Lab assay of single mutants.
Amino acid sequence: QGDIVVALYPYDGIHPDDLSFKKGEKMKVLEEHGEWWKAKSLLTKKEGFIPSNYVAKLN
Rank of each mutant, 00 (worst) to 15 (best):
A56L: 12
G48I: 01
F21T: 00
L19R: 02
T44I: 02
M27P: 00
M27W: 01
I14D: 08
A7Y: 01
W37N: 04
G13E: 04
G34C: 08
E32W: 11
L8K: 07
M27A: 01
S52C: 12
A7H: 01
V5Q: 02
K45S: 13
T44Y: 03
S52P: 12
H15W: 11
G24A: 04
D3V: 14
F49K: 08
E47M: 10
I4T: 07
L19S: 00
I4F: 08
D12A: 13
L58Y: 11
D12C: 14
L30H: 03
V5S: 02
N53E: 10
E31Y: 09
V29T: 04
K45Y: 13
D18H: 15
K22L: 10
F21Y: 01
K22M: 11
E31F: 10
Y11G: 00
V55L: 04
D18T: 14
K38F: 15
M27C: 03
G34K: 06
G13D: 02
P16V: 09
V5E: 00
L30C: 07
L30K: 03
Y11D: 00
G34W: 04
E25K: 00
N53Y: 10
H33T: 10
K46F: 07
E25V: 02
G2R: 09
G24C: 11
K45E: 14
T44P: 00
H15P: 11
L8R: 06
S41D: 02
I50A: 02
Q1K: 14
P10S: 15
S20V: 07
L58S: 07
I4E: 05
I50H: 00
V55H: 01
V55I: 06
K22R: 12
E25D: 07
I4D: 03
L30G: 03
I4H: 05
P51K: 05
G13I: 03
F21C: 03
P51H: 05
E25A: 04
K22Y: 07
L43Y: 10
A39G: 05
Q1I: 15
I14L: 11
K46T: 06
K22G: 08
A7T: 03
F49T: 07
S41Q: 03
S41R: 02
D12V: 15
K38V: 11
L58E: 08
K26Q: 11
